[in-house]
């Protein structure tokens, strides 16, 4: 059916697809926060890294079962997200001088503060754990490497886990946004923060909830990918963070489905580029996509698809 090269290429595409899912996992939380607040949360990559380190600590000291591990990481991510919101975003809501700024100040003054926080967090983790790669204990990491053979192709169980996690997160988020009260508040704040405030939505609480949800998902993505790759390090958040960002821009800034699709496209494109030009040059793909998108498709690849959140 396939000759050797084709098989290899399809295998590469499958790997690219799972890398794309990794980006998608990060992009979901990132896009949620952007979509609601219109802020670029530069510290999202650090939340992802915190998730991985929280998972490592839990494994080393508690060796919990899988479900407990995920829940612990989720809790750590939520805590980190809320702390981040309090430290880097909340203080700037005091720079409002009139009613019209109530919503704006919240979403508009925090690029630099989240950037600064991300540096502080990353460097602090580096001070505590060292800059080097930390290996995840084999007992957990190996579970992600069981090969599942499909004819001539093989996927690792971790790739399946990441696919499942992406589907679950995506569905959960849609459920939260469309079916719950807090989701309704989130969508209201995303559409019109001031209006939401007027009809009685607690904007402050909604913002915290958004950060909690987005960061929880970011942290779970961190531990899953840490487990799958077997090692974690303090700067691990940067590359997926940037790529999630690229996916978000390509997807049209505040469309979560758009970001997910573009993340996968990005993963596939990187796999193809790696195939033809090598690993190093493949890093260029994301940036080329970013700049081309900004210059030629400023509303994202899906045109005027302006659906929010």
């Amino acid at each position: 059916m396939f000759d050797r090269f084709d098989i290899f290429f399809v295998q590469q595409l499958i790997n690219g697809f799972s890398v794309g899912l990794v980006y998608a996992l990060v992009a979901i939380g990132f896009t949620l926060i952007f979509g609601v607040l219109n802020v670029v949360n530069f510290a999202h990559g650090e939340i992802y890294m915190i998730g991985a380190y929280a998972g490592l600590l839990a494994i080393v000291f508690l060796a919990p079962p899988w479900v407990a591990l995920i829940l612990l990481v989720l809790a750590a991510g939520i805590a980190a997200g809320v702390a981040l919101e309090r430290a880097a975003f909340k203080p700037f809501r005091r720079f409002r001088d009139e009613a019209s700024l109530k919503s704006k100040a919240m979403r508009e003054s925090t690029l630099l503060s989240s950037l600064a926080i991300s540096i502080v967090v990353r460097e602090s983790v580096e001070k505590i754990f060292g800059a080097d790669m930390q290996a995840i204990p084999r007992a957990y990491a190996d579970a992600m490497q069981d090969p599942i053979v499909l004819g001539e192709l093989a996927v690792a169980s971790g790739q399946i886990a990441i696919l499942a996690a992406a589907l679950v997160m995506f569905a959960t988020l849609q459920w939260i946004l469309k079916r719950t009260d807090i989701g309704l508040s989130i969508r209201a704040v995303a559409a019109n923060p001031l209006g939401a405030q007027y009809v009685g939505v607690n904007v402050d609480r909604t913002v915290i909830a958004t950060f909690a949800i987005g960061s929880g998902m970011g942290a779970v993505a961190g531990i899953l990918i840490g487990l799958y790759q077997g090692t974690i390090f303090p700067a691990m958040g940067f590359a997926p963070g940037v790529k999630a960002f690229v996916a978000m821009v390509m997807g049209g800034l505040n469309s979560i489905p758009g970001a997910v699709i573009c993340a996968i496209v990005l993963g596939l494109a990187e796999a193809v580029a790696t195939e033809f030009f090598g690993q190093g040059w493949a890093d260029l793909v994301a940036y080329v996509f970013l700049v081309l998108t900004l210059v030629f498709f400023p509303t994202g690849l899906f045109g005027a698809g302006r659906e929010r959140v």
Partner: peptide, 12 residues
């Protein structure tokens, strides 16, 4: 964002 992307392109 574009300058971030271009800067990293030059680095890569």
């Amino acid at each position: 964002v574009a300058t971030l992307g271009l800067g990293e392109m030059i680095y890569v």
